[in-house]
């Protein structure tokens, strides 16, 4: 396997994972905040929808995305009018990974928001802070370790995404073939064991680097937050 090919596979893996996490982050934080702080009718339905990709087989999630975005699907039909076709593109790989990672983000952020003492938010409101200012100035900073943990978890999950990707984005070299898809491809070929081992090592290295990075960030955050979540 050429150097260019390795670089291409690594680039696809990283770009898909990073973009997927970034795409999922804002809606996930919003959903987590709503689920943590508000009660409303239909909440359990929203909850079930948010967590569905976690319990569904990824192939099923991928298939549902394919149906939704195909030329005749709800969203695909509308997008086709603008000349946009999502399935079997790099965008589809990002979308598949984002949907799969979404519940992991929601879970971590929700737990973190629930740990933020709502009395601190009350105090901030009493000091003249609008709800937006309270969220960005108090809630989010105090929940940031959870946001970071969720982000790393989601990133790792995106790097390993296989089922939904191969169903919705295919296994296209130079477009959607990430490390797991490449490993799968080379496993099908005779005499490619060395390449498989190389890709496995690459996968390990990327994952460990991500884990180490998140640990460093997390430690710094906790020091900055003084290790306290409740107002003493």
């Amino acid at each position: 396997m050429s150097y260019e090919m390795v670089w291409q596979i690594l680039q696809i893996s990283l770009s898909v994972a990073i973009c997927a996490v970034l795409a999922a982050l804002v809606p996930a934080v919003a959903a987590a905040y709503v689920l943590a702080r508000f009660s409303f009718s239909g909440k359990s339905l929203v909850e079930a929808l948010c967590y569905a990709p976690l319990v569904l087989p990824p192939v099923v999630t991928g298939y549902l995305l394919l149906v939704l975005f195909s030329r005749k699907g709800w969203l695909g039909r509308w997008l086709a009018d603008f000349g946009i076709l999502v399935p079997f593109t790099w965008t589809a790989a990002v979308l598949a990974a984002a949907v799969i990672a979404f519940p992991l983000l929601v879970r971590s952020v929700r737990l973190a928001v629930e740990l933020v003492d709502p009395r601190l938010e009350e105090a901030a409101a009493g000091l003249g802070a609008s709800p937006w200012r309270v969220f960005f100035g108090i809630t989010l900073p105090l929940a940031s370790p959870g946001v970071l943990t969720g982000t790393m978890l989601a990133f790792a999950r995106c790097l390993g995404e296989f089922g939904a990707t191969i169903t919705f984005a295919g296994n296209i070299q130079g477009e959607t073939r990430s490390i797991p898809l490449a490993i799968y491809t080379y496993l099908q070929q005779p005499d490619a064991e060395a390449t498989v081992w190389f890709l496995v090592a690459l996968s390990l290295a990327v994952s460990l680097a991500a884990l180490w990075g998140s640990e460093v960030c997390n430690r710094r955050l906790r020091v900055r937050l003084g290790g306290a979540h409740v107002g003493a």
């Binding site: 003492d117 601190l120 105090a123 009493g126 000091l127 105090l142 979540h229 107002g231 003493a232």
Partner: peptide, 14 residues
């Protein structure tokens, strides 16, 4: 514009 203090200080820990 009403100031309030509580049983616990509720200082922002960060």
């Amino acid at each position: 514009r009403i100031g309030m203090i509580f049983q616990h200080a509720r200082l922002f820990p960060h």
